[in-house]
Computed example of a mutant assay.
Amino acid sequence: MKNKLFLILFLLTFSLVISQGKKDSIKSNPILYIGMNLGFVNGNFKGGIASFDLNYQQKNNLFTFKYSSILDFKKLKFFIVFPIANTISETEQFSLLYGKRYVEDGFSYHFSGGISYNTTDDRIINKRFSYFGFPVEIGVNWFKSKKKKFRILYGLIPIGKPTGFGRSIGLKLHANIAKKAYVGLGLNFGIGWHKKYNNEI
């Protein structure tokens, strides 16, 4: 129940932020994109992380809502030569971050910080507990610098008219300062509008 209430609060806050930027999006597209990050973490958790984030930028201000899932793989078993992960804990994390993002042609970099709500299911002591944290992240992304046709099937087939909507790829260094702290590095994939393209083609 707590997770649902926290998620609703985040979404309401994020919707208010987006509504404030509607005036800016009349002349050109908004900077609005979704990201997926896959990587590893170290610290109180040692394992893998997968996260999904929704990002909105107004001027140089970046607002992010993020959901993360962390699997702690401190114990590994091997079948012949293949490692098999023995998950000892699983953590769900909801984060709301604010930061600065700067765009230079087809490249951007950002740094953000905020608050997170975490729920860890510890399978060793068979206990589930929740706690708040302070997430921080630094990231870089590459995307198309000008409007182009969107491509499907691994970028092989262009469709429609030139558009600012497109994909991105980048790296993200992130951490969470909390009862269960960690630092991680991951590969980031995105889709959406990563800059204001105006009417340029």
Rank of each mutant, 00 (worst) to 15 (best):
Asn61Val: 05
Tyr154Cys: 08
Ser69Gly: 00
Asn199Asp: 00
Leu38Pro: 03
Pro162Tyr: 09
Leu16Val: 08
Gly164Trp: 05
Ser15Tyr: 08
Asn141Asp: 05
Gly192Ile: 02
Val136Ile: 10
Glu137Phe: 14
Asn55Pro: 07
Lys66Trp: 00
Leu5Arg: 11
Leu32Thr: 01
Phe132Val: 15
Tyr117Gly: 02
Phe132Lys: 13
Thr119His: 11
Ile115Asn: 05
Gly160Trp: 01
Gln20Cys: 13
Phe14Cys: 01
Phe94Leu: 11
Ser112Thr: 11
Phe45Glu: 08
Val41Phe: 05
Ile26Gln: 15
Leu11Pro: 10
Val103Gln: 08
Phe45Arg: 13
Ile125Asn: 09
Tyr98Asn: 15
His174Asp: 05
Leu173Thr: 05
Asp72Asn: 15
Gly184Thr: 01
Ile34Val: 13
Gln20Arg: 12
Lys4Arg: 04
Leu7Asp: 02
Ile177His: 02
Lys161Met: 06
Gln57Thr: 06
Asn126Asp: 11
Val136Pro: 06
Lys161Arg: 15
Asn3His: 10
Tyr154Val: 12
Asn29Leu: 08
Ile157Met: 10
Phe79Tyr: 14
Tyr98Phe: 13
Glu104Cys: 07
Phe52His: 00
Ile177Arg: 03
Asn198Gln: 12
Asn86Met: 08
Leu97Lys: 07
Lys100Gln: 15
Phe45Pro: 13
Pro158Val: 09
Asp105Ile: 04
Pro83Ala: 06
Phe65Lys: 08
His110Ala: 12
Lys4Phe: 00
Asp121Ile: 02
Lys75Ala: 10
Ile34Gln: 11
Phe52Gln: 05
Asn29Thr: 04
Val136Asp: 00
Asn44Cys: 11
Gly48Val: 07
Tyr33Ala: 10
Tyr109Thr: 06
Leu12Pro: 01
Trp142Pro: 09
Lys100Leu: 14
Tyr197Asn: 03
Lys4Tyr: 04
Gly99Phe: 09
Asn176Ser: 14
Phe40Cys: 14
Gly170Pro: 11
Gly190Asp: 04
Ile84Leu: 12
Leu76His: 13
Asn29Arg: 04
Leu156Asn: 15
Thr13Ser: 04
Leu71Tyr: 00
Asp24Leu: 10
Phe40Asn: 14
Phe82Thr: 14
Lys147His: 06
Phe94Pro: 09
Gln58Met: 12
Lys74Arg: 15
Pro135Ile: 08
Phe63Thr: 08
Asp24Cys: 03
His110Gly: 09
Asn55Tyr: 01
Ile49Glu: 14
Ala181Gln: 15
Thr163Arg: 02
Phe165Ala: 05
Asn60Ile: 12
Asn141Trp: 01
Val140Ile: 10
Leu97Gly: 05
Lys46Gln: 12
Thr64Gly: 02
Ala181Cys: 12
Gln57Leu: 08
Ser116Asp: 06
Thr87Ser: 13
Ile201Gly: 08
Gly39Tyr: 02
Lys77Thr: 04
Ser68Ala: 06
Tyr33Phe: 14
Leu171Val: 12
Ile191His: 09
Leu38Met: 01
Lys77Ala: 03
Phe40Lys: 12
Tyr33Glu: 05
Gly186Asn: 09
Leu5Cys: 11
Asn141Met: 01
Glu200Leu: 07
Ser112Gln: 03
